[in-house]
Design a protein around this nucleic acid. Structure first.
Lengths: 361, 361
DNA sequence: TCAAGGTATGGTATCGTTAACAAGTCCGTC
DNA sequence: GACGGACTTGTTAACGATACCATACCTTGA
């Protein structure tokens, strides 16, 4: 049927071992033999079977990554940068999407672990008990990203979503807004969104402001459409609201469009802020104040961390979710990006970024 | 080190064969034995090694999918629907991204084929010669999506991008626009974008209109920012342009925002149309006329086709890129979605959809 | 009571590759 | 001219699971 190394070996008049060497980087083989074997293999339509290769060498060559959604520029940027790092090290990324669902995440993790990944990256710090157990017992480096878990399983590359939301509350309060609302999704699904809401409430209360203007739409992702619907509801029920903070930029944009439809000026009558620094935040008119979590940096740091661990820590630290016994915490600090939607009069020339504010803010 | 079936078998006092059966669906094993073995396996932290399983059974259980970008709602919708179908059949999706680069696509296809996928899905109908050769010789069902290839390799689920673009030209011409421009990316990369441009030019010329207003920005994806930059260039160099058709909705939105910044009314002074029916097209103010290619339907049809082929055609048709010798062509007809950006006066209540126009349009 | 058939379990070979070790070849050097 | 070392190639066994076949036991019906 399909040719194997044995067929190639016979056709080329060498042993299978030599054929194997012809398809590997480090192998000691003469250039002439390698070229001849490759030509014969091409002729036969031979394709290396990496399933067999992985079994024998006990190396799968891939890193499993679980993200909530593949249609989200933030996660896409993280995965993109991560993939670049992983591929530079000669490995591949195996992607799974959880649909913001912890049960689905658990199922995915189980499936992925069966394929013997060399490391596993998850998004967020909250998981089902069984998922935690599988991750901790996997015997490979585990990285939780986009969050600072209360109980880290292995390594962490992320930031505090609550603190980042508090930073935005600080900005709005400094600009003089008092009646501030929050638009977000169903908190039992999107833990990062829930953390941002938590940070919003805590920061508002710390300033003595009313933290009860919370508009909850359906399960994540909170889309543009839902942002518009939430803004409509807000305007109908709490028309004296001065500013709105959305769980993410698309929802903020939807809210802004609803204002446009109703003839409500942004930021004149209503300030709007988002989260994520999606492309739309910079392009929209008016441009959108947001928080940049540096998704690509998260991915790059995660990739570099994994490559480092796999190179240095090979063989040790099984069963601890670390791969080498030393848990790493890499903080990627988000940055406030002030644009027109929260005060065009002060920032007419485009974006102004502020440094990370203290946690107490 | 890590426990294998042998360890589980010893601990449970059964043979490895019985342990194997305890982890499979169809296997003939008593419920009591299975539960006992599973409990023992859990205790030991045993995880099935699907690498070994795949090698022995010669079934990998996954379908490889190559898309240009993971951060594109259209492709994400296709992959989402495809994944649903594939997982319903007990298989998994292995995703690769080509960055709109045919050379990278070729590399990816080579990598993916080594992992013995049971089917392979690619985006678009143009590939390097070597990629074509690999696909045709893979001996598994191959599906080209999002396009109607000139020379199909295997099955096709898609539509003519050129005809869809022509449909949009028809709409704009009917609305009375004559000086129509096209904004697109570097055509050597994004073949679908190039086809849309080709369709634009052909349809314009067929109507005796000037088809030379072509603004080319960088390589794909053509982002919102690039759409805005292209519109700026257009307004500076060809200020008498009446309508703009963008290669995709994000670019159209960017163009619209540039108009907003310059105080140019859409559609009053300038009509704008996009492609893809992204969420932003419905939410933006004004809403955006576009073409809906039904990405989810493409994914669902592709998945159903693959599942059918794998069930029916097992074992035959090796080496033809089909999996069973009968090439299938499934047309998913795009639909024109008329919204405010090309004539709010006529369509004040929201979107109006028109049926597929004939090819000659 | 016994044959026939079904169910549950075990033994052995094998999937296609690579690790580990062995051995042959060629070269320069003293 | 013999020897050490570098380089290249070959032999054998094994990775961890499942296909295939064999077998023991249990049920059923004449």
């Amino acid at each position: 049927m399909k040719p194997t190394m044995k067929d190639v070996a016979r056709a080329a008049g060498v042993s299978v071992m030599t054929v194997s060497r012809a398809f590997r980087r480090d192998a000691s083989i003469s250039a002439t033999t390698r070229d001849r074997i490759r030509a014969v293999a091409d002729e036969l339509g031979y394709v290396l079977d990496s399933v067999a290769s992985n079994l024998r060498s006990q190396r799968s060559g891939f890193v499993a990554v679980v993200i909530p959604s593949i249609n989200n520029a933030n996660f896409a940027d993280t995965v993109g940068a991560l993939t670049t790092e992983i591929e530079a090290a000669g490995m591949e990324v195996l992607l799974g999407r959880s649909n913001y669902d912890m049960a689905e995440e658990e199922r995915l993790i189980g499936q992925l672990l069966r394929r013997q990944p060399e490391a596993l990256v998850v998004t967020g710090g909250r998981h089902t008990d069984r998922a935690r157990q599988m991750l901790a017992g996997a015997g490979i480096p585990v990285v939780e990203t986009w969050d600072e878990p209360a109980r880290p399983i292995g390594h962490t590359v992320g930031f505090s979503n609550a603190a980042a939301a508090a930073m935005m509350v600080g900005h709005l309060a400094e600009r003089g807004y008092r009646r501030i609302a929050f638009i977000g999704g169903d908190s039992s699904f999107d833990t990062r969104g829930a953390d941002r809401r938590r940070g919003f409430v805590a920061a508002m209360e710390a300033r003595g402001l009313d933290a009860s203007r919370l508009i909850t739409v359906g399960p994540p992702p909170v889309s543009m459409r839902e942002g518009a619907a939430a803004m409509a509801m807000l305007l109908d029920t709490l028309p004296d609201t001065e500013a709105v903070m959305a769980v993410a930029d698309p929802a903020a944009f939807g809210a802004m469009m609803e204002c446009a439809r109703r003839g409500i000026s942004v930021p004149g009558d209503m300030a709007i802020a988002g989260f994520g620094n999606f492309e739309i935040a910079a392009v929209a008119e008016p441009s959108l104040t947001t928080i940049d979590p540096f998704p690509a940096r998260i991915g790059a740091e995660t990739g570099a961390l994994i490559v480092r661990r796999l190179r240095d820590g090979a063989g040790d630290g099984l069963g601890d979710g670390l791969g080498d016994g030393v848990p790493t915490l890499i903080r990627v600090e988000p940055q406030l990006v002030v644009r027109a939607s929260t005060g065009a009069d002060i920032f007419p020339d485009g974006a102004i970024t502020s440094p990370w504010l203290p946690r107490s803010a």
